[in-house]
Simulated assay, not measured.
Amino acid sequence: MRQRYLALLSVFTSVPAMALTFQTRLENTEWTVAGDRFECRLAQPITDFGAGEFVRRAGEQAVFRLTAYNAMIGGGSATLLAAAAPWQPGRGDINLGSVHIGSGNVLFNTSQVQAGRLISGLLDGRSPVIRHSSGDGRVSEVRLLPVRFSQAFNEYQGCVAKLLPKNFEQVRQLQIGFPGESLDLDARAKAQLQVMLEYMKADPTVNHIELDGHSDNSGNRLTNRDLSRRRALAVMEFFKANGILESQVTLRFHGERYPLAPNTNAANRAKNRRVAVRLERVAADKAAPQVAPQTNTPGAAPATS
């Protein structure tokens, strides 16, 4: 075991004559895990450079990003590799494509596919390598080591298991449909609203809900306005029954005024029978009134998802 360790140390700490290599010495290599219900991060600090980290946001797959203290490598594109381990002869490096090097502290974010292949490579003993060639022929490499990765990855997976189903961009807007012309929420609508509710409970800064009720044009305008109001009220009652205060909800109703699709067939009319739900961050002294019913006076169309 000691002989293998010394052999690895020799390989990983050597600097090719033609390349400037950034990596942490084998004996100092560590992986750190951090996160909450919104994001999980699995990172390896890189001595005198920055860090490489896998970042997984709620509702998404992981990406890999490289951060730097300074402009260590130039701009342009670089090659991303899952480099073969020196103790596994006969295996070549896997080229995962290119990444574009930016100018800020975050040099790049890979695609989700590239990140997934890097994780698979690390679990198989491969090293993520970023290889950059400058215009004058100089080559720079940044290398992460797979040492102690498996244990850290298990901890990271524990963090991932606790992530919310969706992130704020994914959950902030929603169309609740009433396809059967009813005024009640069906099982699908309740499940969608439950995801919103779970996010609000996890993030207290998301503290306000905008509801805009809509109808098709099947009835007269007064009837349609009332139907859109009652559907918006059904959504508000769901939130109230689950701990949201009325003061956190702004409710409007618009009847048939703002269709999503022309009311020319049954399928389109079903799309128009809806409540648009939008989550907002509102300062306490700027909170909107509980109910703001739409009148027949002209006004701007409501925002929809």
Rank of each mutant, 00 (worst) to 15 (best):
residue 65 R to D: 10
residue 65 R to L: 05
residue 66 L to W: 06
residue 69 Y to S: 05
residue 70 N to E: 12
residue 77 S to Y: 02
residue 78 A to S: 02
residue 79 T to Y: 04
residue 80 L to I: 00
residue 81 L to R: 02
residue 81 L to M: 02
residue 84 A to E: 01
residue 85 A to C: 03
residue 85 A to F: 01
residue 86 P to W: 01
residue 89 P to N: 09
residue 90 G to I: 03
residue 90 G to W: 04
residue 91 R to K: 12
residue 92 G to H: 05
residue 92 G to K: 04
residue 95 N to F: 15
residue 96 L to A: 09
residue 97 G to R: 12
residue 102 G to L: 07
residue 102 G to P: 13
residue 103 S to C: 05
residue 103 S to K: 13
residue 104 G to C: 04
residue 105 N to I: 08
residue 105 N to M: 08
residue 105 N to C: 09
residue 106 V to S: 08
residue 106 V to L: 11
residue 107 L to C: 11
residue 107 L to S: 09
residue 108 F to H: 11
residue 108 F to Y: 15
residue 109 N to M: 13
residue 109 N to K: 11
residue 110 T to G: 13
residue 112 Q to M: 15
residue 118 L to Y: 10
residue 119 I to G: 07
residue 119 I to D: 05
residue 125 G to S: 04
residue 127 S to N: 05
residue 127 S to R: 13
residue 128 P to T: 09
residue 128 P to D: 09
residue 128 P to W: 09
residue 129 V to K: 06
residue 130 I to N: 05
residue 132 H to V: 12
residue 132 H to G: 11
residue 133 S to V: 15
residue 134 S to P: 13
residue 135 G to S: 14
residue 136 D to I: 06
residue 136 D to F: 12
residue 136 D to T: 15
residue 137 G to Q: 13
residue 137 G to K: 14
residue 139 V to M: 15
residue 139 V to I: 15
residue 143 R to I: 14
residue 144 L to Q: 15
residue 144 L to M: 15
residue 145 L to T: 10
residue 145 L to Y: 14
residue 145 L to S: 15
residue 147 V to P: 05
residue 147 V to A: 10
residue 148 R to I: 03
residue 148 R to L: 08
residue 148 R to D: 10
residue 149 F to N: 05
residue 149 F to V: 02
residue 150 S to V: 04
residue 150 S to R: 13
residue 153 F to G: 02
residue 154 N to C: 04
residue 158 G to E: 10
residue 158 G to V: 07
residue 159 C to V: 07
residue 160 V to I: 14
residue 160 V to E: 14
residue 160 V to S: 04
residue 163 L to K: 08
residue 163 L to V: 09
residue 163 L to P: 11
residue 164 L to D: 08
residue 164 L to H: 13
residue 165 P to Y: 10
residue 167 N to D: 15
residue 167 N to S: 11
residue 167 N to G: 09
residue 172 R to L: 04
residue 173 Q to G: 07
residue 174 L to E: 06
residue 175 Q to T: 08
residue 175 Q to A: 10
residue 177 G to K: 08
residue 178 F to D: 02
residue 178 F to K: 01
residue 178 F to A: 00
residue 178 F to M: 03
residue 179 P to H: 10
residue 179 P to D: 10
residue 180 G to H: 11
residue 180 G to E: 13
residue 180 G to K: 13
residue 182 S to V: 00
residue 182 S to P: 03
residue 183 L to I: 00
residue 183 L to C: 03
residue 184 D to R: 11
residue 185 L to M: 02
residue 185 L to Q: 01
residue 186 D to Y: 03
residue 188 R to K: 03
residue 188 R to M: 00
residue 188 R to F: 01
residue 190 K to F: 00
residue 190 K to N: 03
residue 191 A to K: 04
residue 191 A to W: 00
residue 192 Q to N: 05
residue 193 L to H: 01
residue 194 Q to I: 00
residue 195 V to G: 02
residue 199 Y to G: 04
